[in-house]
């Protein structure tokens, strides 16, 4: 293995239960540095649960999870953010009453140091840091394409802009892995297209992307590799083309009727 395709995130035998319900069982996957990795599956397949395990919101019950070669079981979300995993949320969770700029500035928290003393005295280092935070936040807002005045409150942004703002906020933490939970949900075709372009730019800048998505077109057009979850188990993994033809995947999506590979492409991912 060369450094380039070494696993950045590796899960092996991961299980998570809620009461008697196994939300995840024996899921193993490894995400290579620099790739865009897609995670698909029917509703309730355990995608978001997996996400929450990876970002520390849930603690896994079985298995191991290593990031950049270090095991991180039972870590709080802020620790994982610090080591370089940043996320967005399926149902947007911005700091609604803070400005767009402040939202991104909060993202810089984990990479900056100023404490109470610095806040009170505003000594040179604190002032410089604050200036750098603001500057970086403005850059990121432009980077994700938010054109509005940066003082606009997050909740007054359009839906698409809110999704982008979440990405900007996550990028502000300087992640090695950017985990996006259905970033295109609710977006129109144009918005999805520009999101796709944005994610390609993000990847080009050296950040690995983990993507949960329902929009199969987006997944297929964007991801280097895709894993499919169903009932908490991984049923397929590989390059998009391969996964799309996988009978088990088609069965999972269409309810047990393996369709002919040629016609399946557009059907995969259709939700009721």
């Amino acid at each position: 293995m060369t450094a380039a395709n070494k696993a950045l995130l590796e899960l092996s035998g991961v299980g998570k239960h809620f009461g008697g319900l196994a939300a995840l069982s024996d899921v193993s996957l490894h995400i290579r540095r620099g790739e865009i990795y897609g995670l698909i599956g029917p509703n309730g397949a355990g995608k978001t649960t997996l996400f929450n395990v990876v970002t520390g919101l849930y603690q896994l019950d079985e298995g191991t999870f290593t990031f950049d070669g270090v095991a991180y079981a039972h870590c709080k979300p802020h620790v994982l953010a610090e080591v370089g995993i940043a996320r967005t949320f399926q149902n947007i969770r911005l700091f609604a009453n803070m400005s767009a700029l402040e939202n991104v500035m909060v993202g810089r928290h984990v990479r900056t140091r100023t404490g109470i003393w610095g806040a009170l005295t505003r000594h040179a280092a604190a002032r410089n840091e604050e200036r750098a935070i603001t500057q970086r936040a403005r850059e990121l807002l432009r980077y994700v394409g938010i054109e509005r005045p940066h003082q606009t409150l997050a909740k007054h942004l359009s839906y698409g802009e809110q999704r982008r703002l979440e990405i900007a906020r996550a990028l502000a933490t300087e992640p090695a892995l950017l985990a996006l939970d259905e970033p295109a949900a609710g977006m129109n075709a144009t918005e999805t297209e520009s999101l796709k372009a944005l994610l390609q730019t993000v990847r080009a800048s050296g950040i690995t992307v983990l993507l949960i998505e329902h929009d199969v077109k987006l997944i297929m057009g964007l991801c280097d590799r895709v894993a499919v979850l169903d009932y908490g188990k991984k049923i397929a993994e590989g390059v998009p083309e391969e996964v799309r033809r996988n009978p088990a995947v088609i069965a999972a999506y269409l309810g047990g009727e393996p369709a002919s590979p040629s016609s399946s492409g557009e059907e995969v991912g259709v939700e009721e």
Partner: peptide, 23 residues
């Protein structure tokens, strides 16, 4: 300040604040 923003982030959405690396 950085601390003040972190407080307000927690007030707004604690889960998101923690996911952004705020202890």
């Amino acid at each position: 300040s950085r601390i003040g923003r972190a407080w307000m982030a927690i007030r707004e959405d604690e889960v998101a604040a923690e996911a952004m690396g705020i202890n």
